[in-house]
């Protein structure tokens, strides 16, 4: 990634964070911590990795991205709006009466492949898309973003077993692995560690990467599959609430709401960041 691309990814991440904070404040909604932890991944994914564009939303050859942790969907929506999938003004109509955008992502929004919000739904559907692509000979790749909570769901593990069994190497699972979930530390609720070896034992090739470093994100996703004949998993080490000091690594910001003062402070910190 050259300096210009790096700058663009960082700027887009900053813009996504700003949008998320304003959307959550205006909508008096929650899940800001889960949005901020993914904000550095989407710019790399959508500008450097995925074969997608707003002009080709129905192109059968496009890559598919499914967000299984739909509660953090505002970050994806902000990214899609910035890249021209729908008007940016829609972001002002998030989580409100007669709104354009719901708190959990919906496929009725241009660029969103799949609606989610209840965890454990994304990966099985991604498996179906991977199977269909293998059957038709399609070259599209299927990506699904999971999370700590999403990996608590049995249905996610059903799909992990199936994908390994069938060697769907056109499938990549990204994990926003911030180690926190709604009521506390994942370590104290369902400790997924060691996650990479678990996935490998199920027939996947898995690696970890820094989920806040654009270059590390690109490096992890630029040579997929990680191994031919196996589905890939990239576990992004992330920080819940990343970019806002009082939110970082505090599970209370899974649901927490923003006051005008906190919003101002948060926006200042995001603005000041590199």
């Amino acid at each position: 990634m050259d300096a210009n691309a790096l700058k663009r990814c960082r700027e887009l991440a900053k813009t996504i964070r700003r949008h998320c904070l304003q959307m959550v404040y205006k909508g008096k909604s929650g899940h800001i911590g889960s949005m901020l932890s993914t904000a550095d991944i989407y710019p790399v994914l959508y500008t450097r990795i995925l074969n997608v564009s707003p002009e080709r939303m129905k192109d059968p050859a496009r890559d598919r991205f499914l967000l299984s942790k739909g509660h953090g969907g505002a970050a994806l929506l902000a990214c899609l709006a910035e890249l021209g999938y729908f008007p940016k003004e829609w972001l002002d109509q998030y989580y409100c009466d007669n709104g354009k955008l719901s708190g959990h992502i919906s496929h009725h929004v241009p660029g969103v492949e799949f609606s989610s919000g209840s965890l454990g739904h994304g990966l099985p559907v991604a498996c179906g898309m991977a199977m269909a692509a293998k059957q038709s000979g399609g070259t599209q790749r299927i990506f699904c973003m999971s999370s700590d909570g999403d990996l608590n769901e049995g249905s996610t593990w059903e799909a992990i077993m199936l994908a390994g069994q069938h060697h769907w190497d056109n499938l990549t699972m990204l994990v926003d692995y911030n180690r926190l979930q709604a009521l506390g530390s994942s370590k104290d609720i369902i400790d997924l560690e060691p996650l990479c070896p678990k996935l490998e034992m199920f027939g996947w090739r898995a690696m970890e990467a820094d989920g806040h470093d654009p270059q590390a994100i690109e490096a992890a996703l630029s040579t997929l599959p990680l191994e031919a004949g196996r589905p890939s998993a990239v576990i992004f080490r992330t920080v819940k609430g990343k970019g806002v000091s009082f939110m970082e690594n505090d599970y209370k910001w899974h649901y927490g709401g923003l006051t005008a003062e906190l919003l101002e402070q948060a926006l200042r910190e995001v603005e000041a960041a590199q």
Binding site: P60, E113, F114, G120, H121, L123, P124, V125, A126, C127, G128, M129, A130, M131, A132, A133, S136, G138, G154, S155, E158, A159, L162
Partner: peptide
Amino acid sequence: QEMTGVACGVAME
């Protein structure tokens, strides 16, 4: 659960 999700993914293609 996974069967139904897979069917949905297959159908969406």
